[in-house]
Every structure is written in C-alpha cells, then in structure tokens.
Design a protein around this nucleic acid. Sequence first.
DNA 1: CTGCATCTCAACCTTTTGGATGATGCCGAC
DNA 2: GTCGGCATCATCCAAAAGGTTGAGATGCAG
Lengths: 205, 205
Amino acid sequence: MTTTVLLVDDHPVVRSGLRAVLDTDTVHVIGEAATGEEAITLAAHLHPDVVLCDLRLGAGIDGIQTTAALRALDPAPAVLILTTFDRDAEILGAIEAGAAGYLLKDVAPDVIVEGIHRAAGGDMFLAPDLAGRVLQGMRNPLPRLTDRELEVLRLMSTGAANKDIARNLFVTEATVKSHIAHIFTKLGVDSRSRAIHLAQETGLI
Amino acid sequence: MTTTVLLVDDHPVVRSGLRAVLDTDTVHVIGEAATGEEAITLAAHLHPDVVLCDLRLGAGIDGIQTTAALRALDPAPAVLILTTFDRDAEILGAIEAGAAGYLLKDVAPDVIVEGIHRAAGGDMFLAPDLAGRVLQGMRNPLPRLTDRELEVLRLMSTGAANKDIARNLFVTEATVKSHIAHIFTKLGVDSRSRAIHLAQETGLI
DNA sequence: CTGCATCTCAACCTTTTGGATGATGCCGAC
DNA sequence: GTCGGCATCATCCAAAAGGTTGAGATGCAG
C-alpha cells in the first residue's frame, strides 16, 4: 500500500530532490507547497497521509505554526519535520505542535522513507541522534520566559544596552534590569553574553 | 553545446534535486561529491566545466577552502557557490577565493542554469539581490581583525567573560581588554553584545 | 637598520552591568 | 476576596566592562 505525501519546502530544488528520492512504489508525492499557507490549503484538498515539512519556510508562517494548523484539519495528516537545524527549542516546539517526527536533512533518503511510513502508521519517528537530546530536553525543560522577558532577550541579543532596551520598550532602566535579572535566574547565567549564547544555541530566540 | 557540472553538497536530497533540475540538454551533471575533499579529487579526474558548490559542507573543509583548491587545479573549473546563507563575509570570501558566482538556494531552477552557463563562459554571476550588497561590502570592507583578535571575538561570542578568555588564552586580563578595545574600535561598537551581533550578522565568526 | 604591526601587560578612571531587596498595581484563578 | 504571577519602578552596592594612555618585546618588510 502506498503512502501519499505532501512536500513543504521553500526551496524548489529541495522539493525536486525529495520528489525524485521519495516517489517510489511505496510512497507517492501528491503535491508540493512552498509556504505554510499553501501547505494548509493543499492538505485540506488532497488529504495526504503525511506532510513532509521544513521548519524554515522563508516569509510567512513557520513550520511549527504550519504543523499546528495541519494537525487541526480533519482528517489530520501526520506531519514529519525535515530540516537542517537541530535546535532544542524547535524540536520540542514541533513535537508539542503535534509533529510525528523530526529528521535532519543530511540523513540518507531511505531513512526519510522509513520515517514517512512510520509516521503514516501513527508512530513517532525521531532521528536517532536527536532522540537522546529530546528526552534530555524534556527532563531539563528550558524555563518558560514571559513574553516581556523574551522581548527583552531579543533586544539584548541585538547588542542593545539596558538604556536602549528601556527606550525601545518605553519603560525605565530599572524595569529592564528587573526583567534581565529574572531572565538570568531562569536561564542560570550571569551575563548578557552568556544569556545570548544560550538563547541562540537552544533556539529560544 | 552542453556544459558539464560537478555537484558538491553534503545533503543527498539536495544533490538529487539539483541533478533532477539541472540535467537537461544544455547542462550535464557528470558527478556528485558530499565533501570538499571528494570534490577536489573528482574535479581533478572529471574536469567539469563548472563546480556547483555549497558553502556548508558538514565536517571537513568548507566551501571557500574547496573553491580555492578547485581554482588551483589545471584546468580550473569555474566555481559557482549555491547556498542558503547570505552573510557578507562569506560572499566576499568566496569571491576572493575565485568563485565565479554566488546564488541563494531559494532561486528558481532556471536561474541556476543561467548561472552555470554564464560561469562556464567566464562571466561572473551574482544573484541580483546580492550584487548590491557585495559592492557595498567592497566599499565598506570589514576591518581586518588579527588572528588573535578573532580568537578573542569567538570566545567572547560564547559568553566568556574577560577572565575566562584570559584563562583560555593563557594571558592576563589586561591583554584581553587590550584586544577587545582594538576589536571594538575596528568594528565601530562599544559593547561586547554589539560586537557579537555584528560579527554574527556579517559572518565574521 | 628602521619603521610598522602585533601581542603583551599595566594603571587609572568612568560607565555599565548584575545582585539583593522591596514596593506598587493589575489581572486571572481558585 | 485573596493569592500568585507579572510588569513596573526604586535604591544600594559590588563587580565587570569599557576608555585612555603608555610601554616593552617580537618579528617582518622595506
């Protein structure tokens, strides 16, 4: 029995590659989308068994939002994330959004095929080298930053000084320092550069 | 007349996609390599007209080093960089290393084909949206950091404090501060976070 | 030989950052 | 209605970072 697949990637070349590699007797590519929005429309019409989705989709909604929207369809396709990046927050985010699996783009084609079948069958499928990291990440979850704190963290990561951040958010420097103190405690660091580094490593920003 | 091409990319899927998209009556893909080392060996034997090369090649040498090595061959193939990233320092670096062009992976397939023919003909070929940036970058060249300064900058960007950097490099904190002061003047910034941000944006690190 | 760049270090001073503690007002959950 | 989380602000203090100046050692290129 063949599994129907919808490809979602903003790079035409990658879509062609996936189509060439996947379209076999057990997998049938029934559509391609370049954006998340397009993917949702197409999935609603084509009812693929599996959607193979990149996380980075250029402009527009990202892969995680796309995943959530796809999973809200009826019938909902299984969503398999295929991406170049392996940042913790994104993997966890994708899984929270209902993804059935997460693969890195440097895997061999047959691993992707296997993942597609597993996902179609209702299984979870994580690239082996990611599985451990994900469990680790679930045991040591990144502390939840509030929206405001994230905003401050993002400004901080552009090199803004407390004064700049304060001006930008229309608050006093004291407030900024208060937010930053909270961020540091939650992240377990004691300097802005470490916070920035950690946030970038884990995909927090 | 058909142009012969060697593909270099660490992702099997992308190689398949490129092959599917490029292999036409005017372009003939005569080989694929997953690493820079492999690319150099293959190019030396196959004598392709053009090498289409990703910048990020996983482990091993990167695209810029590969380009330099390829251009040292006799006969030297034209090297066309095809990558996802558009960081200034890398574009300039690739061109310095002798690349005939620089394309972003999200372009349409026929642009790639056009680029290949132009490169084979000895032309330079830059994605239109990059051309302006490159000229800009040549007019405002990033100041040259010394090796030591780069080393300090890299450590700084991991969140290391001056003390940590000093320990790591076996020098005193005074020396580190001296290097950092130089880095700041050269980059035109006045805080480590701004330096880090700038360095990351321009691909300096 | 003599600049020139680089790396190294030091002392001095100012500004920024970070830590501790606490207060206020708001809102939503129980 | 009260409790807890959040955002706001404040003060005080200590540590880190940044700016300035200068200086010794090295090594290379003209």
